[in-house]
Design a binder for these strands. Structure first.
Length: 584
RNA sequence: GCACCCUUGGCCCAGCUGGAUAAGGCGUCUGACUACGAAUUAGGAGAUCGGGAGUUCGAAUCUCUCAGGGUGCGCCA
């Protein structure tokens, strides 16, 4: 995808520099794109607001970068956006003219037109698949990372103007289901609870595993295996008591997923169930086997990808049934053909790296043109301090446990003071919004290729760099802004304090940060940005009084600035799937 | 054995599409509230960016190599 040059300041300065280069030499013409990309931020405020590094021109001009910076300085035209320019060694730095810049940026943000235009020039229609939980298992904080990441990426893609289809692919078939039902029918003595049956079911799955593990090597091992095979056959043939039980219990798991999605405010444009692609995926493989693309080896069917250094990809077991890759091929076919998409993104943890390489390569060999536009967006796992989480072993932190503890903690530590003052339901709403802020920010703020070691006590601490810190700034601004009646005309040029211009410059970079997130499929740059913005506001707030500013006009201008910060925060948090409460 | 990912102050983490003095958070030490909402803020101490080599005018950033940690590699999903 290709982005427009949407940063007004950078575009303006790039044009200015281009003119200066043309004026100073005939030998060299840099295009606007190149100059635009060479602009950066100086390390210190007193060195200017934007820097142009001249190193790249040195070779072509046969002059030192420092000399070039000086020469360019002399050739610079006037610009209303630039107060002054100065060379610092090899850098040509610009000081923004607040009289002009403040108004351009804040007008756009306050009218919200800043967020409305598409940032991309070319945008392939994209499907993003995320959240592939298994039924009959409990959702844990590892699934939460996937959901938060996937949802934020979808939001970011849509924000920049890419037509995006969000889809999910839950696993409702397989041996894990058989194990769970086996235990339920034969050994469970408890009555299913009336609420959260899905979580209870997940615990049965763990018990089933422990029992099977326990009886390994005993006289029961063979019997257990035979029983599981029989259950799988019933599920496959779609009849029998286990099939009925499967239908019932699958609903419980679905309810669990829907509760969590509803809490996290996540929706999908389509749901693909694994059971749904099961039989057609086998047919698909057989079709291509007959065409001669796949080979039979030791009774099983697969594709030899060793020429591509991807080993052998097994597609049909010797009993004729499919595997994970089998279903992913059929699912990909449906996405390409049913949804008419050009690009396909899979948000799945990095253990599946080889799997997706094999699937994408196989799709290519099957003749799908868009196979080259498939992308595995991988992320590292969420682990516990004593190692990996495993539903099989039962050492997991369930999502609902995290949510419950977080909500409770927020009510006790922060919202208790409003009891009697606010409606109970209002406290409840805000507690959930703040909990979501903490959890979603926590899940998206770390680079996706770093693992997260989950420690409940650490997560419940809400100070420092956190979602609630940013939400708090928003709430505080909301309270501030509501105290002032706004004039129709604001004198933005009055905002000349260092902390004010710093804030405005940061605000202007919002879309550039988003561009960075989308090009790299990352969420953490947006998190860092919002935190830095919130922090910069707090510094401003501590130093510059808004309500007690010296003049009426300055009160107005600062209020408008604060409002602009709140608007950026609100929009930025919403891309992370986080609400910004008006009070908290 | 092969492949991929990670390694930055006591702990966590940003910077990695090469550039100016490596940015934050937690913890720690010292200050600021009868408040424009302290879920806040001002400041101090704390880093040979895992080791080594190379490319470059310039490397936390790119290449190679070594070490440590993690993950994956045909009948689970």
């Amino acid at each position: 995808m290709k982005f427009k040059k949407h940063n007004i300041l950078y575009l303006n300065l790039a044009q200015l520099i281009q003119e200066a280069i043309q004026k100073s030499t005939d030998d060299l013409a840099l295009n606007l794109d190149q100059i635009y990309l060479l602009l950066s931020t100086p390390p210190k405020k007193d060195m200017g607001d934007v820097a142009f590094a001249c190193f790249g021109l040195a070779k072509a001009l046969k002059k030192s970068p420092a000399q070039i910076a000086q020469d360019l300085l002399e050739c610079l035209n006037e610009s209303r956006l630039v107060l002054k320019s100065k060379n610092f060694g090899p850098y040509l730095n610009f000081y923004i003219n607040p009289a002009e810049f403040n108004k351009i940026i804040l007008d756009e943000i306050l009218s919200e037109s800043f967020f409305k235009s598409s940032l991309v020039e070319i945008a392939p229609k994209t499907t993003i698949e995320y959240s592939q939980p298994n039924t009959h298992k409990e959702l844990h904080v590892g699934h939460m990372r996937n959901m938060c990441l996937g949802n934020a990426i979808v939001n970011l893609y849509r924000y920049v103007g890419i037509e995006t289809h969000a889809t999910t692919f839950p696993g409702d078939v397989g041996t894990h289901v058989a194990k769970c039902l086996w235990y339920y029918k034969k050994y469970n003595t408890e009555q299913p609870p009336t609420i959260r049956q899905g979580a209870w079911l997940g615990k049965l799955y763990t018990k089933a595993n422990l029992k099977l593990e326990d009886e390994k090597g005993s006289e029961n091992e063979e019997k257990n295996r035979a029983e599981l095979t029989a259950i799988l056959k019933q599920l496959h043939d779609e009849n029998g008591e286990y099939y009925t039980l499967w239908q019932e219990t699958k609903k419980w798991s679905l309810t669990l997923m829907q509760e969590v999605y509803a809490w996290a405010n996540i929706t999908f444009d389509s749901w693909y169930w694994e059971s749904d692609v099961d039989s057609t995926s086998v047919a698909l493989i057989n079709k291509y086997f007959e065409k001669g693309l796949f080979i039979k080896d030791q009774g099983a069917i697969g594709i030899d990808l060793s020429d591509d250094k991807l080993g052998f990809c097994l597609l049909l077991k010797s009993d004729g049934t499919g595997l994970y890759a089998t279903k992913d091929l059929e699912l990909a076919r449906r996405k390409f053909e049913d949804q008419d998409i050009e690009k396909s993104i899979y948000v799945v943890d990095n253990r599946q790296s080889l799997h997706f390489k094999q699937v994408f390569k196989t799709l290519e060999k099957m003749g799908f043109e868009n196979a080259k536009n498939c992308f595995h967006l991988q992320y590292e796992m969420v682990e516990l301090p004593d190692g990996a989480m495993s539903s099989r072993k039962g050492n997991i932190v369930p999502i609902q446990k995290l949510i419950d503890e977080m909500v409770t903690k927020i009510k006790i530590d922060y919202l208790n003071k409003y009891v009697g003052d606010w409606h109970t339901c209002e406290i409840d709403t805000v507690a959930n919004q703040v909990a979501a802020g903490a959890i979603k920010y926590g899940m998206t703020r770390i680079d996706s290729n770093k693992k997260i070691v989950f420690d409940m006590d650490e997560w419940l601490k809400l100070d420092g760099e956190s979602g609630p810190y940013i939400q708090y700034v928003h709430a505080r601004i909301n309270s501030l802004v509501s105290k002032i009646k706004r004039d129709p005309e604001i004198q933005f040029e009055l905002l000349t304090h260092e902390l004010e211009s710093d804030l405005i410059l940061k605000l202007s970079k919002f879309n550039t940060i988003i561009e960075n997130c989308v090009t790299n499929n990352k969420t953490h740059p947006l998190c860092s940005y919002l935190y830095e913005l919130a922090k910069a506001f707090n510094s401003f707030y501590a130093e510059c009084s808004v309500l007690k500013a010296e003049t009426h006009e300055l009160v107005q201008a600062r209020t408008a600035l604060a409002d602009g910060v709140a608007i950026i925060i609100r929009n930025g948090l919403s891309l992370l799937g986080i609400d910004a409460p008006k009070k908290m």
